[in-house]
Design a protein around this nucleic acid. Structure first.
Lengths: 336, 336
DNA sequence: ATAGGCCGTAAAAACGATTGCATCGATATA
DNA sequence: TATATCGATGCAATCGTTTTTACGGCCTAT
């Protein structure tokens, strides 16, 4: 029913091969012939079948993206970076939510490989041996975004979480705080969880402050957990005077818990978040936060993937993007 | 290089056809044969090629989704609803951002059709004649989500924006307000922009309140525009005592503008937002908002699409999901 | 005993492109 | 003039499946 390349060929009085050449911009076609073919295409309303093309050429111009949760403020921003660069390079994106469940992640990898994607972008928390196995068992290029595998065997794009957390904590230390709490992520999250916690510990240590276990709570990255853990902090005999949260949502929860108890941010307690999602501008006081360039991570990861798909040579396969702290009103201006 | 159905057939000592039957769960295979084939598949690590399958069967189990901006809180939630139902019905999603630019939207429709998607989900603001033409020129089922075309020719899933805005405004009227401002969306957005404005007008009228043009501002759905327009309201000789914003981000901007000027929400000015995104719980005071069930809209739209793709009979092709107002602290408790 | 059915399977024709190779005329070279 | 070169095009194999058709064998009903 639909018009095929064969119909166009007949209409234009040439062979399928020539039509294919015209469609694909192959220069080996006489201008006049090209014009005839183009006219026939127009007349018939021909639309190339990408599936047939994919079968014949073994390229689908499609890449698979496995993402924990597209509805998350953090990942949706990242996804946008991916998509924009993909568009720029004429790729389409098959988007899949994994909810960080390994079983689902592995199954998605398989499905995407069945669909013959030209490349794979994996975003998530932990990259385990099983992932590595599934991802390296194929020749399809893969890039990790906002995460890394322990041995850096796969290409990846992320920031230095340890250093970022160190910097945030250090900013608090240098402001003279002695009781600095941290709302950390789950410890089974190696980067945003564990690494940030390690950075926090190191900064305390370098500042000559002894770690107080009671000032460390584990959250799940959601607002509510920031609220709850901070309430517990405030009930302590010696509550903290500063809080570093492993992400912004929890930090905002912390601010509200503090405000709800009648205290003031930043006068009574200073708060620093992490990631610098758009939300940080939409609360009062606006939240000081470690900038993690989500959009850029996505964009750079996708760009990197295009290089692999083109068999271009890649100098450094583990890229760490710069981070910085954006100071706002949830921390006091730095004393001179 | 990769193992094909032919390799499996040889390994199992059967024909390709039989392997295909096994893979596709066709019951016409003797159990013993099936077992042999399964064993061969396992042994060889066979992974069916979905592209070849798509070419032969004319089904790709993939649907295209055109979305204005995946990084928006609103649309990412919707996308999640789509994806979850898609997964449930074994479809994958090709996700494309349109930024509401018609040229890009039309081009995306074309690209997705080239890729032979089994169905199309279109989310956006305005559905113009050009869209309709592009979408109906093909036999690929299409469903609109969170929007509608003027003549309801295409299936769609949304809420009654007019009524929703009416209800929100009416709630303010019934609280005794006489000066109720609205921060509306762009007027070229027929539903979230125009319809909500119409609902507002009607509610004022029914409440015997004369429309004051100075109390109507046009925003762009972003926080900053809520902030800016509200500042202007407050500079009025007779500022409003209540504000209805066409979406939550602008409403939160309004709250902050009010607070920044030293006034109190809700004591001095009450504020109602629209959409009930997750943000509304993360500000103080928490925002009263019209609940637009984004996730459900996505889910229902995708479900509807599956019916069309299956040639099932569909009773009602324009579905309006229910809305309601979730009252929080940005409005005062209703007087008895 | 024979015709008719049914089951399980094989064979082969699509599906709609890409692409290596052959061809062919024309121009350039010797 | 004969030959090498080259640009433009056609031919046909190929990509890895699905699906239609046909067929052999076995069972059952008459």
């Amino acid at each position: 029913m639909p018009v095929t390349i064969y119909d166009v060929a007949r209409e234009a009085g040439v062979s399928m091969a020539t039509v294919s050449r015209v469609v694909n911009g192959n220069p080996n076609v006489k201008p006049l012939t090209r014009k005839k073919v183009l006219a026939a295409i127009e007349r018939l309303g021909y639309r190339p079948n990408a599936v047939a093309r994919g079968l014949a050429s073994k390229k689908t111009t499609t890449v698979g993206v496995i993402i924990p949760d597209i509805s998350s403020l953090f990942f949706s921003e990242l996804a946008r970076g991916i998509e924009d660069i993909a568009t720029m390079y004429k790729y389409n994106i098959i988007l899949c939510n994994s909810d960080q469940r390994m079983e689902k992640e592995l199954q998605l990898i398989n499905t995407l490989l069945e669909k013959q994607v030209d490349g794979l972008l994996f975003l998530g928390a932990e990259v385990k041996e099983e992932h590595l196995q599934a991802l390296t068992s194929t020749s399809v290029p893969t890039v990790l975004a906002a995460t890394r595998d322990a041995d850096n065997v796969l290409p990846s794009v992320s920031i230095d979480h340890f250093q970022a957390a160190y910097d945030a904590t250090e900013a608090l230390v240098s402001r003279g705080h002695k009781r600095i709490a941290m709302i950390s992520g789950p410890p089974n999250d190696p980067l945003s969880g564990l690494m940030r916690y390690e950075g926090y510990k190191k900064a305390l240590n370098d500042g000559g402050i002894e770690l107080d276990e009671k000032l460390v709570a584990t959250g799940n990255y959601f607002y509510e957990s920031g609220l709850a853990t901070t309430k517990a902090f405030l009930a302590l005999a010696e509550p903290p005077t500063a809080i570093f949260a492993a992400n912004d949502e929890m930090a905002i929860g912390a601010i509200h818990a503090i405000q709800d108890s009648g205290l003031n941010v930043p006068d009574d307690i200073e708060v620093i978040g992490h990631d610098n999602i758009r939300l940080v501008e939409m609360v009062r006081p606006r939240l000081t936060s470690v900038v993690q360039p989500m959009y850029d991570i996505g964009a750079v990861a996708m760009r990197l993937l295009t290089k692999y798909m083109n068999n271009e040579n890649v100098e450094e396969h583990v890229v760490l993007l710069p981070h910085r702290i954006e100071f706002r009103e949830s921390t006091k201006p730095q004393q001179a």
